[in-house]
Design a protein around this nucleic acid. Sequence first.
DNA 1: GACTATCGTGCAAAAACGTGCAGAGTCAAG
DNA 2: CTTGACTCTGCACGTTTTTGCACGATAGTC
Lengths: 254, 254
Amino acid sequence: MLNHERKTRLLSILSDAGSIVAKDASRELEVSEDTIRRDLRELARDGRLKRVHGGAVPVAEANAPFAARIGIAPPEKIAIGKRAAAMVEPGQVVFVDGGTTALQLARSLPAQLSATIITHSPNVAMELLNHSNLDVEIVGGRLLRHSVVTSGAATIAWLDRYRPDICFIGATGLHPDQGITTGVSEEAEVKRAIIAKSGSAIILASSEKFGAVSSFKIGDWRDVDGLIVAGEARPRALELFGHLECEIHSDENA
Amino acid sequence: MLNHERKTRLLSILSDAGSIVAKDASRELEVSEDTIRRDLRELARDGRLKRVHGGAVPVAEANAPFAARIGIAPPEKIAIGKRAAAMVEPGQVVFVDGGTTALQLARSLPAQLSATIITHSPNVAMELLNHSNLDVEIVGGRLLRHSVVTSGAATIAWLDRYRPDICFIGATGLHPDQGITTGVSEEAEVKRAIIAKSGSAIILASSEKFGAVSSFKIGDWRDVDGLIVAGEARPRALELFGHLECEIHSDENA
DNA sequence: GACTATCGTGCAAAAACGTGCAGAGTCAAG
DNA sequence: CTTGACTCTGCACGTTTTTGCACGATAGTC
């Protein structure tokens, strides 16, 4: 393995897990702890991470409440993101919502993919900077601090510029009878607007949302085309949502 | 096999796998490692890839470590950012450009400041998430990978929604006679548009830009109201720009 | 304050590197 | 067809870089 590749993987471990433990990394990358320590020392000298006893942590730690949030992305969300990324075809125009699961989607897109990604999340946009063949469009508007997306009348108006092939939407409530809901009124407006303009609409569904109902309705099940679930949540999803006019995608049915 | 064909295949291995290991490539292309090394050296000289010990990696990496770039912000840019942040009054509507110096401005804004910040840089927007009393507006459009700002016709059109009290603009060329310039055409358009709509326009001027001229003109000195310089650059700035109809602010004249 | 895990440094083996050189192939002029 | 200039490739050799181990120092824990 290239020295450089190893450092890249260390940085990716850092951003995925939020920290690096030298001993674990040594086992995972199959090199001695000495080498890991050397790498960490060099990365620290370049300001890419902060060295601590036993491993390393991100540099920005102090001022990054959001970085912490993405650091703790649970395996389920990562799996949903991967499954969603696999649905994107080259050349498509894709809308990606904000939120941690959507961010995982962005991370999982193939590095060489050529497509157009539209998003109202500055996070997602930043994540896609490394994908040199992607066209990235940011939807403007007022930034909602809580969810880190733009929204408001201006955002809704701006959305009319787009007719994506497919959109990936997050939600905080997924109920068989009450439909798809979210906790913030402005966000619901944006999600509803983009679903109406997209060729197909896919909901990113982590299992803690199953059966929940939030205050603002995004739409009914007939408004969307698919639902992505992952791992052990699959049987519950089938039970709850299997009878609806909405396809259930998961990482286990290939 | 033709020399040229071999290099093409090396580049394709690089884009498929994300890296080249000299030994593996030598086996796959059935030539000696020496030849592979020679090829890699030449490709590196042409800027098609980056040579590392053991093989090669994509050169694109050069523009990816934006996170690294902001980590190593030189003291001068930090000082300029601080001085600029001090010019923002509570309640104002402020446009902030992209770039590393503008990012320092964002970082230096008082945590409790209540104001409206408009920006076309997702970076700057993200940085302001911690400032809970700020209204942040993102200007949408197509994301320019290199400078991490939105631009294009849609961006220009969207800008017409705003009439900021003050705007802070970066530039890559500051010449007494040739005016204010930047290296990317689309960026110049955005900068010019927002300057025209702002009550006052301030240029963030780190000293390596003094006397330089880039390819695309943003405007003349009479179009802007002020210039922020820092530290030891002050005497040079006064000498070069002191006679222009443009106020020079620095961190030493309080 | 003692014990253990981790750290940094020096060192030697292995891998990768650059350079010089010779043989093979190519091309154009004679 | 022959000759000479030129390029490309593989090999040899000395140099540099990387890596794992040994050992004393240091930091964290109980």
